[in-house]
Design a protein around this nucleic acid. Sequence first.
DNA 1: GGAAAGTAGCTTAGCGCTAAGCTATTTCTG
DNA 2: CAGAAATAGCTTAGCGCTAAGCTACTTTCC
Lengths: 171, 171
Amino acid sequence: MSTPKASRDPVDAIVDQWAAVRPDLDTAAMEVFGRVYRLARTMGDRMEKAYARFGISRGEFDVIATLRRSGAPHTLSPRQLSATLMLTTGGMTGRLDKLERAGLLRRSPDLHDRRALQVTLTDKGLAVVDEAVGAGLALQTEALSALDEEQAGQLADLLRQLLAGTVNPPS
Amino acid sequence: MSTPKASRDPVDAIVDQWAAVRPDLDTAAMEVFGRVYRLARTMGDRMEKAYARFGISRGEFDVIATLRRSGAPHTLSPRQLSATLMLTTGGMTGRLDKLERAGLLRRSPDLHDRRALQVTLTDKGLAVVDEAVGAGLALQTEALSALDEEQAGQLADLLRQLLAGTVNPPS
DNA sequence: GGAAAGTAGCTTAGCGCTAAGCTATTTCTG
DNA sequence: CAGAAATAGCTTAGCGCTAAGCTACTTTCC
């Protein structure tokens, strides 16, 4: 009965199950990615609920947050938005339709390129995103309080390093 | 021009953008969760492709992997599977339909409870999952090689701690 | 032992996404 | 400067999920 490094979690249980039936497998990577998937899912669900209070989904929040972040005049093209959000143009059309109907943004013609549009946050959209971003961050901050400040910084650094190697495999 | 702690990544850029337009926000939590979401998404996409070589989706892999992990005789009920995989029963029905059609598992009546079914891996299903799990782990292991062994262990521990506080908010 | 409550799995409607294909417009190329 | 290639945004079909409702069966409770 030695000291456990931390309370066992569902991922530990899965790793143990694999060890019992396939002891040849190297499951070390599962300890990281299994937890990454679970965190993304559980926190994602909670974020969804947090944004629902403002009448928007998480995907819709991402759109208006991207416009907000870009600074005044809070204008980007659908193309820029879909590229930033890693979304197909078809998916973007749907999100913009919903947000435009809700009065949070408007589409206007691009004067320099008649194929293109400009998507601009309305006053209402600006007000909603400025409130919603605070609510979302509060939720994440609370979740992160499971770690102390040094641990949180360490975690962010490790994730940055992992992400860099993952997206840009050093060939 | 001081030493960067690591090469800047897209999440750093987003944090900087927020700092420019909303300097009042505490974006520390975004440094963690922003990267968790991205990692889950990019690695998820790559896992999807890895499993596609075996004719299955990631969701379908999760089903046969859960059966495999449970040990001989590789049998669970749809209810157990949907609970483990955090899926509605409707979603489970669809996955089982596809896997049964592909001959990777079979549904049979539960002799003790006539409402219930038993889902059992076929020989073919067992062969597929035993190959696919190796391919999936290889992909994850390669991605994780961006970190050394100590860092990987540290990351797993920090994620375990964060996940524990997130799922079970200590009230 | 019979009514009420609970549970297992399926079906349907609706949602949001992707992939593929479309038209209109712009940019590249010889 | 004309034809070819690329690009912007939209539409449609299809996919996999959820939420809600259904039937069949089992368990609980007087």
